[in-house]
C-alpha cells in the first residue's frame, strides 16, 4: 500500500469513528430532550415534590443540585489548586511524590457508591451530621479532588519551561512565577477541567444517596440566613438533588406519571449541564483574554 492510500484509508476510518461518537451524543441528547421537554413547565421547574409519591415539581432539587455543586467546588477547587501546583512545581521526583500520585490514582478509581457509603458512615453516622448538604459536598469533594488535581497539574505542566525560566531569571520567586505567569496561561485548561468535573458532580447520584439524602424538605426561599433550619442555604439540611430525584422516582416513585417525571427531570439535568459548560467555557476564554491581553 502506498503512503497516499494509507493516508486516505486512515482519514476515512478516523472520520467514521468521530462521526460515530458525535452521532451517539446527538442521538442521546435528542432522545432525552424530545421525551422530556414536553413535560417541562414552569410549575414543574419551580414546584415542590410530594414527599410520599415523588410527584410534582423539582424546584427544590434543582436548587439543591446547584447549591451542592457550588459548595463542592468551593471546597475542592482551592485544595486541588494547591495540590496541583505542588505536584507540578514543587514535588521532587522521589518515592514520596510517587506515593502521593498513586494515592490520587487510587482515590480517582474508587467507585462513587463506595465514596458515598464512606461519607455516610463517617459524616452522617459517626460525626452525627445527618443527611445534609455538607456531608454530600464533602463526599463529592473526595470524588472530585483526584481528577481536578490531575487536571490542574497537567495544565500547569503543559506550560512551556521557558516561561518558568523567564520568571526565575528576573528574580521572581517560584511561587510568584507560578501564580503570576504560569497559572494565567494554564487557566483555560484548568477552567475546562473544572467544567468537566462540575458536570460529573452535577449528575452524580450514587455518592449522594446516603450523604445528602433522599428527601427535599420544603425550604423557605425567602430566608437566606444559612443558620436558619428552613433556609435553603442551611448546609445541615438534607438535600435531595436532581440526579438523586431521578433515580428515586424511577426506583421507588409511586406517582402514576413516574416515567414522564423522570424524563422531564433528565431533560432539565442535561440542559443545566450544557448551559453550565457553555457559560464556564466563555468565562475561561474571557479570563484568558483578560490576563494575556490577546485578542
Amino acid at each position: 500500500m502506498n503512503a497516499k492510500r494509507t493516508d486516505f484509508l486512515a482519514t476515512v476510518v478516523i472520520n467514521l469513528i468521530v462521526a460515530t461518537v458525535v452521532g451517539i451524543l446527538v442521538f442521546l441528547l435528542a432522545y432525552i430532550l424530545i421525551s422530556g421537554l414536553p413535560h417541562v413547565s414552569w410549575s414543574f421547574l419551580t414546584g415542590t415534590t410530594d414527599a410520599f409519591s415523588g410527584a410534582g415539581g423539582i424546584g427544590v432539587q434543582l436548587f439543591n443540585s446547584f447549591y451542592l455543586l457550588v459548595l463542592t467546588m468551593l471546597i475542592s477547587v482551592p485544595i486541588s489548586l494547591g495540590a496541583g501546583i505542588y505536584l507540578a512545581e514543587y514535588a521532587k521526583d522521589n518515592w514520596r511524590t510517587s506515593l502521593i500520585r498513586s494515592a490520587i490514582e487510587v482515590l480517582s478509581s474508587l467507585p462513587s457508591v463506595v465514596v458515598g457509603l464512606f461519607g455516610f458512615l463517617l459524616f452522617v453516622v459517626k460525626f452525627k451530621i445527618g443527611f445534609s448538604v455538607i456531608s454530600g459536598a464533602i463526599a463529592l469533594t473526595f470524588f472530585n479532588l483526584p481528577l481536578l488535581t490531575r487536571n490542574i497539574e497537567e495544565s500547569l505542566s503543559a506550560v512551556s519551561r521557558s516561561q518558568r525560566e523567564a520568571g526565575l531569571s528576573l528574580g521572581l520567586s517560584k511561587w510568584k512565577t507560578e501564580i503570576g505567569i504560569i497559572l494565567p496561561v494554564a487557566l483555560p485548561g484548568i477552567v475546562t477541567g473544572i467544567v468537566l468535573s462540575a458536570g460529573r458532580v452535577f449528575g452524580e447520584a450514587a455518592a449522594l444517596i446516603y450523604t445528602a439524602g433522599q428527601s427535599a424538605p420544603v425550604t423557605n426561599f425567602g430566608d437566606w440566613n444559612p443558620m436558619d433550619p428552613a433556609s435553603p442555604l442551611n448546609p445541615f439540611r438534607p438535600a435531595e438533588t436532581l440526579a438523586v430525584h431521578i433515580w428515586k422516582v424511577n426506583t421507588e416513585g409511586l406517582a402514576n406519571n413516574a416515567a414522564q417525571l423522570s424524563a422531564a427531570a433528565s431533560a432539565v439535568l442535561i440542559i443545566a449541564v450544557l448551559l453550565f459548560n457553555l457559560g464556564a467555557r466563555l468565562l475561561g476564554n474571557f479570563l484568558y483574554r483578560r490576563v494575556t491581553a490577546s485578542k
Binding site: A166, L168, S169, L172, I181, T292
Partner: peptide, 25 residues
C-alpha cells in the same frame, strides 16, 4: 538574578501585554 539578567535562546515573552511583560517583575 535581579543583578545578573538573562536572555534565552528562544524568545520567551510572557503571555501578557507588552507593557505587562516589563512591569510585572
Amino acid at each position: 538574578r535581579r543583578h545578573i539578567g538573562m536572555v534565552f535562546q528562544r524568545p520567551n515573552p510572557f503571555a501578557k501585554s507588552i507593557r505587562e511583560n516589563i512591569v510585572y517583575a
